[in-house]
């Protein structure tokens, strides 16, 4: 198949830029939901007031959110596995290329989303936006009357509290931050997010996993280790 290779590859880059943009948009949306803090009242007792205030008001610095991102990548991808071909450095570089957290102002919610994820003790709290989003989803169907909706929201809250308590007891740890946990605890904590009663938290899990998988499995090194030969030779 005759092809103008130069044209093809530059075209690929253009398209790539466009679609990466899309993938991260969904993740960003989720983080935005998490980070929107209107009505965040009930959680003060759980966190030292000053730390909570800082979390909600101050713009997190790279020194603060980078370790969270790193811990997340290390939890989702098995760098220790003998057959996993990518180094941590290569993967972080790849992720940075797709999500330049430092450079782009509009990725700010993602930075704060990561900080909120790090705060284990906040997990069961009904952050205003999380609850609002869930309420909207429940209200979209007229069969759910307002009282029922609020009851369901309370139940979801209770469910998340139980999940966290169970997790802490099982792992035998206090509510330390995600970044301070041992790898096995981190795995369980991330899993907790997939089990939440609130859609937005499950979506955080799902989209965080998706953007990391996408940035990993679009790389030919990984194709090789799983035996995927990619495009037909004439399209290589």
């Amino acid at each position: 198949m005759p092809r103008a290779c130069g044209v093809q590859s530059s075209m690929t880059e253009v398209v790539n830029a466009v679609s990466v943009d899309r993938a991260r948009r969904e993740f960003l949306k989720t983080c935005m939901g998490l980070a929107a803090v209107a009505g965040l009242s009930g959680c003060a007792p759980l966190l030292a007031k000053s730390r909570l205030a800082k979390l909600l008001v101050a713009e997190p610095s790279p020194d603060e959110y980078r370790p969270v991102l790193k811990a997340l990548l290390e939890t989702v991808l098995p760098f220790g596995h003998p057959q996993f071909p990518l180094s941590r450095e290569a993967m972080f570089a790849r992720f940075d290329a797709l999500f330049s957290l430092e450079q782009e102002a509009r990725l700010a919610p993602m930075r704060r989303g990561l900080m909120l994820f790090d705060e284990t003790s906040l997990f069961p709290e009904a952050l205003g936006a999380v609850r609002d989003e869930e309420r909207r989803a429940l209200q979209a169907y007229p069969a759910n009357d307002p009282e029922m909706v609020e009851r369901q929201l309370d139940q979801k809250n209770a469910q998340d509290k139980k999940l966290l308590d169970f997790f802490l007891k099982k792992q035998g740890i206090g509510a330390v931050r995600f970044t301070e946990m041992k790898p096995a605890d981190r795995k369980e904590y991330l899993w907790l997010w997939s089990q939440s009663g609130f859609g937005l938290k499950r979506q955080f899990y799902r989209t965080a996993k998706a953007v990391i998988m996408v940035s990993a499995y679009s790389q030919p090194e990984l194709w090789k280790s799983i035996g995927y030969q990619g495009p037909f030779p004439d399209r290589g």
């Binding site: 093809q8 398209v15 466009v18 679609s19 990466v20 949306k29 859609g199 989209t207 679009s218 990619g230």
Partner: peptide, 27 residues
């Protein structure tokens, strides 16, 4: 046909919402 690279990622250019169209809750 010359545009189709057989790479999943590139093919998003052919899809509604660049492949990201979903129900309103994203699910």
């Amino acid at each position: 046909k010359e545009f189709f690279t057989q790479r999943e990622w590139d093919a998003n250019a052919l899809y509604a919402g660049s492949g990201a169209r979903a129900t309103s809750d994203g699910s």
